[in-house]
């Protein structure tokens, strides 16, 4: 990973984290100060999606080139995306407890998120069940691509095609965040950099995890 990207990640986080806690937010009924979770919860899903997309791209490249580096990168990216997904669920549950008065509801987006996490946990089980490295790389790349395409169908297309009521903003007749008349532009100035910052941090973490796994394997091989 290029150094200027790391610097960009640090700078955005230095801007985002204090502003997320201290910056001015628009006051909404029910939401009140919990609207600050926008910077944590929503950004996690965006970043997770980008990371998973990158993981799938590495999977496709692996199938075309058989370069084991691509498989390891794909694994590291999926791991970080999974962590982001779990954080996304946790922050979402806390938010839901304060605004909808429950940790979990039958909401298409919640179900989609849960299914995605399950599918990628299954991906991890699949990986750990195969000992031969080349076979593992091939099979998990195939499953990864398959799961990603179906996840896109699940998250993007199905909730729009069926008239299920969602409690999420912008769905089921609820106003989207963009429709709040007094949504301060200050919030956009934190929200968009937060997406960028978390995504860059994700790539950085994946990069570190990839390098650690590679070093561990190489040192084990020489002993």
């Amino acid at each position: 990973m290029k150094n200027y990207l790391k610097i960009a990640a640090i700078l955005t986080m230095i801007w985002v984290i204090p502003m997320a806690f201290l910056g001015e937010v628009s006051v909404q009924p029910v939401l009140h100060e919990t609207i600050r979770n926008l910077y944590w919860h929503v950004t996690m899903w965006f970043s997770m999606f980008v990371l998973l997309l990158a993981a799938v791209v590495h999977g496709i490249v692996y199938l075309r080139t058989n370069n084991s580096l691509n498989d390891e990168k794909s694994l590291a990216l999926t791991q970080v995306a999974l962590v982001y997904g779990l954080i996304g669920i946790a922050t979402g549950m806390i938010w839901a407890r304060f605004t909808w008065d429950t940790f979990w509801t039958k909401d298409p987006q919640l179900n989609g998120a849960a299914i995605t996490i399950l599918a990628y946990l299954a991906y991890m089980v699949l990986r750990s069940s195969i000992s031969d490295a080349r076979k593992r790389a091939e099979i998990s790349a195939v499953y990864g691509i398959f799961a990603f395409v179906l996840m896109v169908v699940l998250i993007v297309i199905l909730p729009r095609m069926q008239d299920v009521d969602s409690l999420h903003p912008g769905k089921g007749g609820n106003p989207g965040f963009g429709n709040y008349k007094d949504l301060k532009n200050d919030m956009r100035l934190v929200f968009y950099p937060a997406i960028l910052g978390w995504t860059l941090m994700g790539f950085w973490m994946a990069n570190l995890s990839f390098r650690i796994q590679r070093l561990t394997r190489n040192t084990n091989a020489t002993h």
Partner: peptide, 18 residues
Amino acid sequence: AGNGAGLSAVLGLPLMVP
């Protein structure tokens, strides 16, 4: 993957949700 029916259920069920 050299694995039995258990694995194919774990892999398949989440993806069958749509």
